[in-house]
Design a protein around this nucleic acid. Structure first.
Length: 703
DNA sequence: TTCAGGTTGGG
DNA sequence: CCAACCTGA
């Protein structure tokens, strides 16, 4: 497995290869195929990291995510040094490809190795890396370190990609086990880098974020060795009771591994193998619960796999609903609702507790994520992409692929997701996930003295009970922002409207308007008004002046261009001050003063919407995008032979990149109109992608 | 006891 | 969409 020491000594002089290992979300030295391959070359290895967050556009990482990354890179750097490398070479850039090219030139490297990623930006960028560096005569090789199986390896009986999770996962489970995880390389020789190659100092936080970040360090220890510890602790601890406990809102029973998995500090293959071993053991002991726990935990790993699978097959799944009719859903464009949701002032205790935990810690139990996001989509009927963006900004384990899958699942955009018209009742869910109200009491101190009987529906509590608990509804805790019955009928209306619009659009197409297909998607997306970005700062001031957009709009929503977490810093430090006394996560906010607001006040805000601001917002956002808007023409859909000729397989040269399929193909069940689901709008915004892209359908046919 | 009709859980 | 479960005549 590992390179034999004798070989590297002798051959070093003559072959003298120098390989840049480009780290991204694979921040580990163990079971890292790119690093291992580089170490095997017997030449010199230059481990490198390029920080170019501007490339991520609206998905610039949020504060907590950046904090994690910075810690993890430190940890990785230390590990690499221990193995003999000079250091992790870092670059601050706004153009990753240029930075890599410069790095390769200045180090005199002949090889570049990296591990695959599957989000749309990476697919395109990595492809470009191969082209640009390849043209320079650099050998570029890429590997799988992020998944059990590459997305193009998992196909149904007809050789087509799966469109539902269960069959996908069943197929995975009966495929040959993924290779066993590799040990870290014995030694990394990076030669003398002091001359040719300096490191940039990377800055991941600003002054205002430092205080909040200091709190994170008490609760979390990023880094691959800590990932390993956390994993070991989990499989030897909570895993055996996972099937029983996983429903409790309390995170004491969850694995807490997702941030590690996001940054690739923990290898899913290692997870898979070790959990399988546990499962075998418990199966032999006929421990049914333990065995089932393993299956369930592995299934959640499977969902992570599936999120990459979907992202690969549908690169726009983070911004477009996969089911076409959802594009006609008239989302409620209401900033006040959005703000109330974020601040945990909806009047539904379980939802509010979740939102405040998220705010305070960057963490949420999976179940609670479902609760708050389904409330967001179904009760408030806000556009799911706003919620997804907020998750992206605030979650410690923010992960575009997983979150897109989650939100699409919730918003009824997947064939196997939940229907849109089913509203979950937060009151009932409260008693299910938090039967004794402990979770609510921890995060909503204002309800702490309310008896369990009423904790999940304070609005039903008798006045005397409320008084005894020190609660004045509408004053120190809000009344429900929207009644569930009201939400249900609103949702029904919205759905009928959606189907009408959908039918109308279809009729239009059948009337021979070929271009009709594009109409809905060409409609300008709804922007966040500029003011939204400053809203958080105004938490305790009059919100009535917040201009907002009103009413419903269909089509997809733009996301804010600045992460709200940056703007939030001010208030957050205030909040953090309240947590100072708590040593361990989850911190309990003991002093939080949320603005007293009655439902009628909220309604006044809703009523006071100015519509003028809407167009401002739209225009600004549009402008931003049209700056980059060029049509991609010609050569997008390659012929089959071209596609297959540049296909070099799993460990090989080319990462296949999705492109809009040729107009005819209709094998895809999502595809009421395939072009929308695939990358057209994405490509429009990334004109440099005019190179030939490979098409997944064609690939699978030709190989 | 049985059976329609609703609710809930799953991904 | 569908199975399992509950509920109430």
């Amino acid at each position: 497995m590992s390179a034999s020491p004798s070989m590297s000594g002798g051959a070093g002089e003559r072959t003298r290869t120098r390989t840049v290992v480009w780290f991204r979300r694979d921040l580990r030295v163990e079971d890292n195929p790119a690093l291992a391959a580089a170490a095997r070359t017997a030449g010199e290895v230059v481990p490198a990291y390029v920080w170019a967050p501007e490339e991520d556009g609206p998905y610039y990482p949020g504060r907590v995510s950046r904090w994690w990354l910075s810690q993890s890179l430190k940890h990785l750097d230390a590990s690499l040094r221990r193995l003999g490398a000079t250091r992790l070479v870092t670059r601050r850039s706004t153009d990753t490809v240029a930075a890599l090219l410069e790095l390769v030139r200045s180090t005199g490297a002949t090889h570049l190795f990296f591990n695959h990623l599957y989000d749309p930006l990476s697919l395109v960028r990595d492809h470009r890396v191969k082209q640009v560096l390849g043209a320079e005569g650099i050998t570029v090789q890429s590997f799988n370190s992020d998944l059990l199986y590459e997305p193009w390896e998992v196909l149904d009986d007809h050789g087509c990609p799966f469109t539902m999770f269960t069959p996908f996962w069943n197929k995975c489970l009966c495929m040959v086990d993924p290779p066993a995880p590799m040990l870290p390389p014995k030694r990394i020789n990076s030669g003398d880098l002091s001359r040719c190659c300096s490191s940039d100092h990377l800055i991941f936080e600003d002054e205002s974020e430092r205080g909040s970040n200091a709190l994170l360090a008490r609760a979390w220890s990023p880094g691959w060795q800590n990932a390993d510890k956390a994993f070991t602790a989990f499989i030897n601890g909570p895993l055996i009771d996972y099937s029983v406990n996983r429903k409790k809102a309390d995170s004491a029973n969850t694995s807490l591994l997702s941030p590690y998995l996001h940054f690739g500090e923990l290898s899913v293959r290692k997870v898979f193998h070790q959990v399988r071993m546990k499962q075998l053991t418990w199966s032999n002991e006929s421990n049914r619960d333990g065995e089932e726990g393993c299956s369930l935990f592995l299934r959640s790993i499977g969902l992570r796999e599936y999120s990459r699978y979907l992202a690969f097959n549908h690169p726009c799944s983070h911004e477009k609903p996969l089911l076409a009719h959802l594009r006609f859903f008239p989302w409620v464009v209401n900033e006040v609702y959005f703000k109330v949701w974020r601040q945990g002032r909806t009047g539904y205790p379980l939802v509010d507790a979740g939102m405040r935990e998220l705010w305070a810690t960057g963490w949420l139990h999976d179940r609670i994520r479902v609760v708050v996001s389904s409330f967001f989509v179904k009760v408030l009927q806000l556009p799911w992409r706003w919620g997804m963006k907020y998750f992206w900004d605030t979650l410690l384990d923010a992960d575009l692929e997983s979150d897109a899958l989650g939100w699409q699942y919730i918003s009824g955009s997947l064939p196997d997701g939940r229907e849109l018209d089913r509203i979950d009742n937060p009151q009932f869910e409260g008693y299910k996930f938090d039967p004794y109200g402990e979770y609510v009491r921890r995060w909503l101190p204002e309800l702490a003295r309310l008896p369990t009987e009423w904790i999940h529906h304070p609005w039903d509590a008798p006045e005397s009970v409320l008084q005894a608990a020190g609660i004045e509804l509408g004053s120190n805790y809000p009344l429900p922002i929207v009644e569930l019955d009201e939400a249900k009928s609103r949702l029904q209306d919205a759905l009928s409207e959606m189907w009408e619009l959908e039918a109308a659009s279809r009729a239009e197409i059948e009337n021979g308007m070929e271009e009709g297909l594009g109409d809905s998607s060409d409609e300008p997306p709804i922007a966040f008004p500029q003011e939204l970005q400053h809203m958080e700062v105004d938490l305790d001031r009059a919100t009535i002046h917040t201009p907002a957009t009103a009413g419903r709009r269909r089509a997809d929503q733009m996301v804010p261009s600045i992460t709200s977490s940056l703007v939030r810093a001010e208030t957050e430090t205030e909040l953090s001050a309240a947590f100072e006394s708590q040593v361990t996560r989850p911190e309990v906010p003991s002093q939080v003063h949320f603005q007293p607001q009655t439902r009628t006040e909220i309604r006044d805000e809703v009523a006071s919407y100015g519509t003028a601001s809407r167009y401002n917002g739209v225009q600004q956002q549009q402008q931003q995008y049209t700056l980059h808007h060029h049509r991609v023409q010609g050569g997008i859909a390659p012929s089959t032979s071209e596609a297959s000729s540049s296909w070099t397989g799993r460990e090989g040269g080319v990462v296949p990149v999705w492109s809009p399929p040729a107009a005819s193909g209709h094998s895809d069940p999502y595809a009421a109109d395939e072009t929308d689901i695939s990358s057209r709008s994405y490509l429009d915004r990334h004109p440099q992608q005019s190179h030939r892209l490979m098409n997944w359908n064609q690939l699978s046919q030709s190989s």
